[in-house]
Amino acid sequence: MTMSRYIRGYLAALAATVLACAAAVFAVNAAVDPMWYFGGNRLGSINYAFNERLSKLNLFLDRSENYDCVIFGDSRVTLLPEQVIEGYRCFNFAFSAGKAEEAVAYARYIKDRGFAPRLVIMGVPAAAFRARIGSTNIPDFIRSGDDPKPALLTYLSFDALSMSWRTLFGTSPLDRVYTPDFECRIAPGAPVYDPAKPVPDMMAGRFTATERVSFYEEMREIFPQAELVGYVPPISAWAIDAYDEAGWLPDYVRAIHTAAAKFDKFRDFGIPSALTINVDNTYDGTHYSEPANRVIAEALLTPGKGEALDLKEMTVEEVLASYRQRLAQYRVVLDSN
């Protein structure tokens, strides 16, 4: 009897200890909220992006009724300030290495949950039309239409605890971070752009896979009531110059012009301009600063504003001629770096 009581007491104490540890792990993870189930970090002033494909969906599902506009794209588009899109309440659904196929999958998912936006904005870099762009990373629950993993299960793990620890005491896993209001910012310590160093993967392949514009057609089918707006995010003028020297610029222009036909509005902010010739606007030649992206957001829906091209109003030959004219315009600066 004595031994039996001892064992029961030991097991009860062990269970209580395990429950206390689990509760503590969950409490810390819920407070820091690295996967954005509960509105983000309440113990600090910054949110890190550990898995934007999951964390942004968690955030959206918690407040989807607040929005009538959604933005899709890759890491360059995460820096577009959604609050600056005048006349709409936008949610920025862009994430690292985001592809049009993934945007379509997420669009179907949120449509099935009753979301019907008035405006859809898509970042459309020419790199989306390379012959090889890598595999997609669509979570299984998105493909199946199931709910994401609940916070209770996610936040009982030590993996999540390591994310919380890093949020509080470590550095960002990306060169981008998010404010308490989930506005994307370039992280402290991001590199300084040197035009003499090529943009990463700049010459990874020519822009010939224009059949991928079918994904933009699918987006229109998913949200037929929405205005569909596309834009080319800015890219270093030195990268455009390198494409021209390599003989790739006609393919580049043809790809984005083909994409433009699938949208109601389409602006090209990648053409050489005062924005893309200023090295202080970017840390790597392809991710642009908050002020630069604010300029883009303010001009995105306004025809004729700024130096961006309106590809809906131009032939492909006119676009190519404009690119070469801009390269000539900025030749002295391009050759000085």
Rank of each mutant, 00 (worst) to 15 (best):
residue 110 I to G: 03
residue 44 G to N: 06
residue 138 I to C: 08
residue 186 I to V: 06
residue 299 A to V: 09
residue 50 F to Y: 14
residue 163 M to H: 05
residue 136 T to F: 05
residue 244 D to E: 01
residue 81 P to N: 07
residue 333 V to R: 14
residue 298 E to V: 14
residue 308 A to N: 09
residue 131 A to S: 15
residue 97 A to H: 10
residue 279 V to Q: 02
residue 291 P to G: 05
residue 169 F to S: 07
residue 51 N to E: 06
residue 153 L to R: 04
residue 151 A to I: 01
residue 209 A to E: 04
residue 159 D to C: 03
residue 77 V to H: 09
residue 211 E to G: 09
residue 3 M to H: 09
residue 225 Q to D: 12
residue 12 A to Q: 10
residue 13 A to T: 11
residue 13 A to N: 07
residue 182 F to I: 03
residue 237 A to C: 10
residue 250 P to Q: 08
residue 141 F to N: 11
residue 191 P to G: 01
residue 288 Y to F: 13
residue 197 K to H: 00
residue 270 G to H: 02
residue 159 D to H: 11
residue 90 C to N: 15
residue 329 Q to H: 03
residue 76 R to C: 01
residue 254 R to E: 14
residue 310 D to I: 04
residue 71 I to P: 00
residue 116 A to H: 06
residue 305 K to Y: 03
residue 270 G to L: 07
residue 167 T to L: 04
residue 310 D to K: 05
residue 9 G to T: 11
residue 76 R to N: 01
residue 276 T to P: 03
residue 8 R to Q: 08
residue 185 R to S: 06
residue 9 G to V: 10
residue 107 A to D: 00
residue 161 L to D: 08
residue 77 V to P: 01
residue 14 L to A: 12
residue 319 V to T: 15
residue 326 R to A: 14
residue 12 A to S: 13
residue 238 W to M: 05
residue 143 R to N: 09
residue 206 R to Y: 14
residue 40 G to A: 00
residue 112 D to W: 01
residue 134 G to N: 08
residue 48 Y to V: 06
residue 313 E to M: 07
residue 235 I to V: 14
residue 100 A to P: 11
residue 127 A to F: 15
residue 28 V to L: 13
residue 86 E to S: 14
residue 162 S to Q: 12
residue 15 A to W: 10
residue 265 K to M: 07
residue 249 L to A: 02
residue 151 A to N: 00
residue 315 T to I: 09
residue 68 D to Y: 05
residue 260 A to Q: 08
residue 154 T to P: 12
residue 251 D to N: 02
residue 103 A to D: 07
residue 241 D to C: 10
residue 38 F to I: 10
residue 162 S to I: 10
residue 268 D to P: 03
residue 36 W to V: 07
residue 49 A to G: 13
residue 92 N to E: 13
residue 27 A to I: 08
residue 271 I to E: 04
residue 213 V to W: 00
residue 261 A to V: 00
residue 322 S to F: 05
residue 258 T to D: 08
residue 84 V to P: 00
residue 218 E to Y: 00
residue 179 T to H: 02
residue 324 R to M: 04
residue 50 F to S: 11
residue 333 V to K: 14
residue 24 A to W: 10
residue 188 P to S: 11
residue 88 Y to E: 13
residue 87 G to A: 12
residue 95 F to H: 15
residue 52 E to Y: 03
residue 255 A to T: 10
residue 116 A to C: 04
residue 126 A to P: 10
residue 91 F to L: 03
residue 131 A to K: 15
residue 19 L to W: 09
residue 123 G to L: 04
residue 336 S to N: 07
residue 110 I to L: 07
residue 272 P to W: 07
residue 199 V to S: 04
residue 140 D to V: 11
residue 9 G to F: 02
residue 236 S to Y: 01
residue 153 L to A: 04
residue 254 R to S: 10
residue 115 F to E: 04
residue 175 D to H: 08
residue 252 Y to V: 08
residue 331 R to A: 07
residue 337 N to P: 00
residue 27 A to D: 03
residue 303 P to D: 14
residue 244 D to Y: 01
residue 293 N to I: 10
residue 303 P to V: 13
residue 86 E to A: 15
residue 5 R to A: 12
residue 7 I to F: 05
residue 119 L to Q: 03
residue 175 D to F: 06
residue 178 Y to I: 06
residue 159 D to M: 08
residue 258 T to Q: 12
